[in-house]
């Protein structure tokens, strides 16, 4: 049933679609992020408790959200790859990993920058930041496993299993870290999440979330194109593309 997509023949179609979608997503992302940043950094008023430092949530919250979202995409496409051996699904998982890891790293760094004025220290073992750090390790493990197995087919299947195992584990890790945090942390610390938000702050935040989402899709399309070219380097249609200088 899924044979058609599993065939080499469908790759040119996917490649062309990705080629067409990449700039569309790219422009959408740029518009959302620029407008979002303007509304968030210039228009929105300063917070009466946190001053201007709260504005980092316009980057922190979308990237934290994307770090989870990208992992879900990765795990879902890995499962699809394992069940139906659909090569495109593996390319999506392969393409998503470094993007997701980057979002995770941005979430961690912005969390730390926010921590300095708020807590007086760059790092605090807050439940969210700790979960985010562990998520980064899981992303890095996925990429390390992929790069240390030479045979691409084996690497793909092993990495897919790891991604699926990870998705079962992430909620458990998250829950256990929350539990651990409530036991060890006095509850008085201001949390980075859920500030009661005024509409002037909510609007740029939602725009930034949409922008980051589109940014991910843009990056994904670019990397999917690369992935297809790498895997299909030996086929005639890629040779044609290269000959015509259209890559």
């Amino acid at each position: 049933m899924f044979k058609w997509i599993h065939r080499f023949g469908s790759s040119p179609f996917v490649y062309r679609t990705a080629n067409w979608l990449a700039p569309v997503f790219g422009i959408g992302a740029a518009v959302c992020i620029l407008v979002g940043l303007y509304l968030g950094l210039v228009v929105a008023p300063a917070d009466y408790e946190q001053g201007d430092s709260y504005r980092i949530i316009f980057v922190h919250v979308p990237s934290a959200w994307m770090s989870m979202f990208v992992y879900m995409v990765m795990a879902t496409s890995s499962a699809v790859f394992l069940i139906w051996r659909m090569k495109l699904a593996d390319i999506v998982a392969w393409a998503s990993a470094p993007i997701g890891a980057s979002f995770t790293l941005i979430a961690l760094l912005t969390g730390a920058f926010w921590g300095k004025p708020m807590w007086g220290t760059y790092w605090i073992w807050d439940a969210r930041l700790t979960s985010e750090l562990l998520l980064l390790f899981i992303y890095l493990g996925y990429m390390a496993l992929r790069s240390s197995i030479e045979q691409p087919q084996t690497a793909a299947r092993a990495a897919a299993i790891l991604a699926v195992v990870g998705v079962v584990n992430i909620p458990i890790i998250h829950f256990s870290v929350e539990w651990w945090n409530t036991l060890h942390q006095p509850a008085t610390i201001t949390k980075l999440d859920k500030p009661s938000m005024h509409i002037s702050m909510l609007r740029p935040l939602l725009l930034m979330v949409a922008g980051f989402q589109l940014l991910y899709f843009h990056q994904l399309m670019v990397r999917v194109k690369t992935g297809i070219l790498q895997r299909e380097a030996r086929t005639a249609w890629v040779a044609e593309l290269v000959a015509d200088n259209r890559v």
């Binding site: 390790f137 890095l140 256990s176 651990w180 036991l183």
Partner: peptide, 19 residues
């Protein structure tokens, strides 16, 4: 490499065990 993959996944066991 094996430790890299597995150690993050073992965090819950560590938390509840030492807890």
């Amino acid at each position: 490499l094996m430790s890299l993959l597995v150690l993050p996944l073992t965090v819950p066991v560590l938390i509840f065990g030492s807890g």
